[in-house]
Amino acid sequence: MKFTLVIFSAPHSAEGAASALRFARALLASGHNLYRVFFYGDGVHNASALEAPPQDESHIVAGWQALQQQHQLDLVVCIAAAQRRGLLSASEAERLGKPAANLAAGFELAGLGQLVDAVVYSDRLVTFGD
């Protein structure tokens, strides 16, 4: 079955972010297909290259990156939600005249059309957030 996950939870703030990552691992391990993961609202912080949790805590960004490499996942971060919250790719940082970029490797910035497309082409849409 084709799944899309929508994530509204910021990592290390709300349970939804860690649950989404575990759910993604479980569905891939069960042989399902993960069409796309769409990060929206505060969920955009799951794509920050600057996440630096203490060693004995879960490293959610790295978890997504490892899964992305293993399964060639489509990890899409809403560009409008990301810009509002200071999550920028190198090209966006340059375009907007900001001093740094922090979009982690393996994630892509794109518009809400990618969410709409995912709704249409997935069998199941699962939302993680409060």
């Binding site: 929206y40 609202g41 505060d42 809403c78 409008a80 809400l112 059309g113 709409v116 709704v119 957030g129």
Partner: peptide, 19 residues
């Protein structure tokens, strides 16, 4: 909650794509 506005933005994006 910012998701009130961001939710409506997603709704408008879907509507613009005839969904």
């Amino acid at each position: 909650d910012a998701l009130a506005r961001e939710g409506l933005e997603a709704v408008l994006a879907a509507a613009a794509m005839e969904q």
